[in-house]
Amino acid sequence: MNRGLTLFVGILATFTLAWAGLVLIPYLQFGRVTDYVSEETGQTLPPPMSGLAQRGHEVYAAEGCVYCHSQQVRGESQGSDLARGWGVRRTVARDYIGERPHFLGTMRTGPDLSNIGRRQSSVEWHHKHLYRPQSVSPGSVMPPFRFLYSLRKIVGEPSADALKLDGLDAPPPGWEVVPTPDAKALVAYLLSLDRSYPLPEAPTE
């Protein structure tokens, strides 16, 4: 191989082949699937994300949640995701059409979050958990996100949003811990994560 041209053509050809196979064809084949309107309930699936949840999606990206939490449920032949209750069916391409960037993830230092809004639907739990994960999940190695909350002096009426903290986390008397807009958006996003609706290519029964 002493000819630069042969080398160049070969390098170009192998690369283009892989690009066509792993990028172009997938894009044409399932990169343009649209949402699905359920005949039974008339719902649009997957349900569109609310504005606040969309903002929470950005917080999820900025804080790097994706490095420890996946958002994909594998089928019965690959792992015990279904038996663990992380979903009622495997997730499919259509589940993610509204997400930019995708948060499929590759690591489960923490549990899968595909259906966390369904599995843990309490706003209060999520705030307590973000403030200090070990307060509700003893032994967790998740870092606290206290910087998403502000400690402030109660002036007049206590805030309706204030976290109900006790024990170690309780603020000094006369003070309260309130979530920042980022924390509220993140919790709204987490609560929106529910991929348990049936799709034609992924039935739930």
Partner: peptide
């Protein structure tokens, strides 16, 4: 993926490609 992102899990396959 970044400038004109495609949709859904095609992003994931391009990401890992």
């Amino acid at each position: 993926l970044v400038f004109w992102p495609v949709q859904g899990s095609v992003q994931a396959i391009i990401n890992w490609w």
